[in-house]
Structures are given as structure tokens and as C-alpha cells.
Design a binder for these strands. Sequence first.
DNA 1: GGATGTGAATGTCTTCACAGCT
DNA 2: AGCTGTGAAGACATTCACATCC
Lengths: 222, 222
Amino acid sequence: MRKVSDPTVSRLSLYLRILTELQEQGQSTVSSEELARRGGTTAAQVRKDLSFFGTFGKRGLGYGVPDLLAKLRSILGLERRWRVALVGLGKIGSALLGYQDFRRQGFHVEAVFDADPAKIGRRWDGLEVRSAAEMEDVLREQEIDIVIVAVPAEAAQEVVDRAVRAGVRGILNFAPTKLHVPPHVALRSVNMTVELEGLSYALSNGGREAAGRRSGVGGDRS
Amino acid sequence: MRKVSDPTVSRLSLYLRILTELQEQGQSTVSSEELARRGGTTAAQVRKDLSFFGTFGKRGLGYGVPDLLAKLRSILGLERRWRVALVGLGKIGSALLGYQDFRRQGFHVEAVFDADPAKIGRRWDGLEVRSAAEMEDVLREQEIDIVIVAVPAEAAQEVVDRAVRAGVRGILNFAPTKLHVPPHVALRSVNMTVELEGLSYALSNGGREAAGRRSGVGGDRS
DNA sequence: GGATGTGAATGTCTTCACAGCT
DNA sequence: AGCTGTGAAGACATTCACATCC
């Protein structure tokens, strides 16, 4: 199971979501064909993706929904609770704090930081906003796994450097800038501007050259 | 200039941002080497990306900053103004409406829709919130180019179908679900859950298998 | 019979390496 | 001398096609 590509991992998330829906609808079994149709990919791709991690299906039958669901949650590391910190309480940071849909997948925001004295000390959603100055200490004390960076572009790299120094091993970046992290730290970015510009390109240059994969976007590599 | 890959287009956005910074700092020329270092890629990659669109550099010298900036803006279709509509005024939609950093690149939100009667008719940032029921008409009247989908997953596909029927050719999806569009429509997605799960996978499975690309990760194809 | 799992083939993207300008 | 532009090579990802098993 070494060397699984990133597109594959992203598709696993997708399958997980589809399987969750299927389970809610009480469907007990699913074929690679059906997963592919719902996920906008191909049956061969689904089977190949899963084959990197083991052999979960039954030939002639397909995959057991609850079974595959459990396997995927395990593969993606979603059986444990992840301790997340949010840095930056501007428009985007506040929205994320309010949204928290990802909490259901085990991502819990345990600390919130901002540099603005007017915000420090206030409570947002049951959490006290801490000063960005005490970031390293708090990240360490709270054993934060993942930091969500929602600060202006100019401040983002410094936040990352400090988080990495405090032992954080995962960064989710919302700042519209390219960040650099050491090899042992995982980085993903969400960059709306890149996506909009991709649409602009697609709309400008004929209709038929499409937009693209990776929504996701962005393209980091840790 | 046919058949340019999506990763290439995303990197053009990145170069554009770097060039903007360089210009603000008054730097007149830049090498593929420097663009690569700042952009977290390689010099060969930068040159290859640009070569799809023409020959913009001077051998022995590098690229002229203002010149390349102008070329990229033209390639990405950023010389015109794009008419954008936002559908869904929940946490994320409201944040986007408040954020609007992308306005500087020519993306103007001209219409806002929500299904909640309590929100319809209110003014947000100078725009009256319209009923989702009148979406098709307004999209057509206002000649909207791009629709940002910020509704719950269950409602997203219907919003897209209606937008497409109204002539919209670009969709930016924030709903945590896979959307399907006809070939002539460009689609990009931003899916935070996929990115977080990618981090979870990376953190779980050894430290050394990194996270990935394309932030942006998501992966559509129109 | 029906659907998986997978080597082999194909396709796509990145990196190399160097010829060619300035 | 320096740095671009690019064909060719290499790495990576997807698709094909079929043997395999329930």
C-alpha cells in the first residue's frame, strides 16, 4: 500500500460521501459501476483506487456498503478525533467557525487565534479567541494536529512556520498565496481565486476546453 | 495553443500573483528560476507552462515583469469584467459576499439568491437578495457568466441544472457534493472536507507520504 | 452470470538536457 | 555567459481487457 497518489486519496473522500448517502437510503451493496456513475469517474478507476488498499469487494456482487464505509473511514484516518486550530477570524475564518460541517468527520476546532486586540478574549462559538502571540504555546499544550490558515496572504507563511515549529503536521491553507512547508508536514490549499481564474480561462478560450480536476484545487505538495 | 492542461492553468494564476507582487516591489525582470522558487515548482515547468501560449521571455535575460503580467491577464481572460451570481446565503455564501477579494481580478457579484423567505428582499452589501425561484430569469436578464453555488449538498445539483438552463457557462461549487454539468459548461469545486480528509490520510499514514497537489485539489471536469 | 482485481497498454504531465538567442 | 524554448525521456495516472472468483 505504498505510494498512493493524491487524486486517489481525494476520490476516496468522494466514495465515502457517496457510501454515506447509500447507507442512509438503506442500500446494502454497491457496484464499482454505480459508485463511478455517482462520483463522475469510471468503474475501473474505482476498482483501481480501492485495490491499493486491499480487496474489499465480492466478485459477482459488488461491495458491501457498511463494510466499505468502515474500511474507507479507517484508511482515511477518520476513526480518531483530530484536533484543529483556526488562525484568523476575518470573513473566511468566521464562516468556517460557524460552518463546521467537517465536525461530523471528526475534525474539532479546539483553539482560535487572531492578531486583532479587539477580537482577542471574545468568545466565538464557545471558544475564547487567543492572541496570535501565544500560538506556539497553545498549539503545543492542546496538542493540535491541524492548523487552518485563514489570515491575509502576507501573514500566512509566518503562521505556518510557527505552527510547524510547534509540532503541527497538517496545514489547510485558505490564504491566497503559495506556502512552503518541510517534507514531514502535509499541506493542502483552497484557493478560490485560482478556481475563478480557471473558469475565466475556460470561458474565454472556446467553450469546449473544460475546466478542471483538482478543484481543489490548488496544488501543494508537502 | 490547443489542449492546455488544468494544472498548467492553475499555475498561471499562481505566476500572475507572484508577478503582481514583483511589480509592486518594482522588479522589472524575472527568471523562470525565480518564478519557480517562489511558486514552489521548477524552472522547466514554468518555461513549459508559458511556452504553450507563446514566447514571452528574452534569452539570457528572463521575462519582463509588466509584460508577462499583461500576457497572463490576457491568457486567463482577466481583461474583461465577469458577471457573477451567488446562490445560497448561509455561512459560506455570506462570507464570500463579504470577502470579495476576487473583485480585484474582475469578478463582480451582480446577483444573490436564497430560498429562505426571511432573507429574500434584504440588502446585503448593496444587493437585494432575490428569491431562488426567480433564478433563471434574473440570470438571463443580468447576463450572468458564472454562478457560485453555496447551498446545501442536496440542493446543489438542481441549482446547477437551472443555472445551465439559463445560459450560465461557469460554475464554482462550494457544496460538498459532486456535480454533473454538460460538456460546454466549466466546473470547478472547492471542497474543504476532501482537503481535510486528505490531511487526515497523510497524517495517519506515515509522515513521509505527503499531501497533495492540486490543492485544489477537488477534481471536476466539465 | 456478473462484477471484482489487476497486469499491460495508453494517455497525460513533468523533468531533462541542450540547442539557440541575446 | 546566461537563460529561454522545446523535443525527447521519464514518471505518473487512467483506461482497457480479461482471468478469476462468488
